[in-house]
Design a protein around this nucleic acid. Structure first.
Lengths: 183, 183
DNA sequence: CCGTGTTGAGACACTCATGTCTCAGGCGAG
DNA sequence: CTCGCCTGAGACATGAGTGTCTCAACACGG
């Protein structure tokens, strides 16, 4: 039962990443169950999205924990973070585009904590003189989400290989497109 | 009449940037006209979105032309491009998230030309030794769109000031978050 | 003053996703 | 075997958004 629920959430996330307007019926079929059973798990579409949001937040937090953001150079922490967050990238991309979640005051406070932790990582990098200070931590956090989303979609469409995901996101975010003078 | 149509498109773009699921009625009210008149301009929601797509492509092409991508260093060309494309950023953000446009074979070929031109700019930068070669032009193009989208949303939400838009996008895309060794 | 043309408001039917319900079939536990 | 539970399939009502239509009000030029 609990396993079923998780399985449904996973396949729903995979489907909604590709087609964010998928029907409840499509979601059910993607999970290999009927619409009736889907409704027995989740009261409605809203409840499903909320559950996906909670799952996304939980996976993000787990990834943040595994990445040990406060250890070693900030750049390496960012690389670890991107690598750990990749499995949740598709789900994140879906949620990032679901602006329904951000308007209104009912937004999940979990995002705030996530933003704070990621932002703190960039702040630490700036304090240590490792990261430039003319790009605000808030914008870096935003750009982080944006690049994750872009690369997740590019991966789904086959324009980026899954194995290149961590490099593409982390190296662009950290080093940019310009060639370094040396090294 | 032609002016009206353009005005409707502009306000529709502004509204849909904030709320991509806005009703035809909301779009009409945002433009200060009735739903009936809106339908006299655009046969339906699909036609409206297609018109917005065409507008977005046209504005992008105009921005590309103004930016003179093949002149001077590639990095400067990217900076010019971001600056010129800023007015269309909101519209681009909406279209970028409208995955309905990308699935199916009816997708507008204008995007292909755009992608090609932007990708060519990155390729030129790589050929000149100005840009790193471990990030593919395709991914840089994708990341370009992604950062435009993220910054457009951040601007709408007030997390980024409009005047900082060009710097934030271009400098992150080009230089990344890492502090340069020197200069 | 009078036709012409456009607009806004509203009514209407239609489609589609949703939410709820019922019922028959299957499957495992006792 | 039989009972209880879960599931899938389908019917049904509902609501929202849409597309079409009519009609009265209005502005404008002749």
């Amino acid at each position: 039962m609990a396993l079923d629920r998780d399985h449904v959430l996973r396949s729903a996330a995979a489907l909604l990443t590709r087609k964010s307007t998928a029907t409840m019926d499509e979601v059910a079929r993607a999970a290999g169950i009927s619409r009736a059973t889907l409704h027995r798990h989740f009261a409605g579409r809203d409840a499903l999205v909320r559950a996906l949001e909670a799952l996304g937040i939980a996976e993000c937090e787990a990834a943040l924990n595994r990445a040990r953001l406060d250890e070693g150079p900030a750049a390496d922490a960012v690389r670890r973070l991107v690598r750990e967050i990749q499995p949740a990238a598709g789900l994140l991309a879906f949620l990032y585009g679901e602006n329904q979640l951000w308007e209104g005051e009912g937004q999940n406070t979990g995002w705030l904590g996530l933003d704070t932790r990621i932002s703190a990582l960039f702040q630490r990098g700036q304090r240590d003189g490792e990261l430039r200070i003319d790009l605000t931590p808030g914008w870096l956090t935003e750009a982080f989400y944006g690049l994750i989303t872009s690369c997740a979609w590019a991966t789904v469409d086959g324009r980026v290989a899954p194995r290149d995901f961590p490099t593409m996101v982390a190296e662009l975010l950290l080093g940019g497109a310009l060639r370094r003078a040396e090294s």
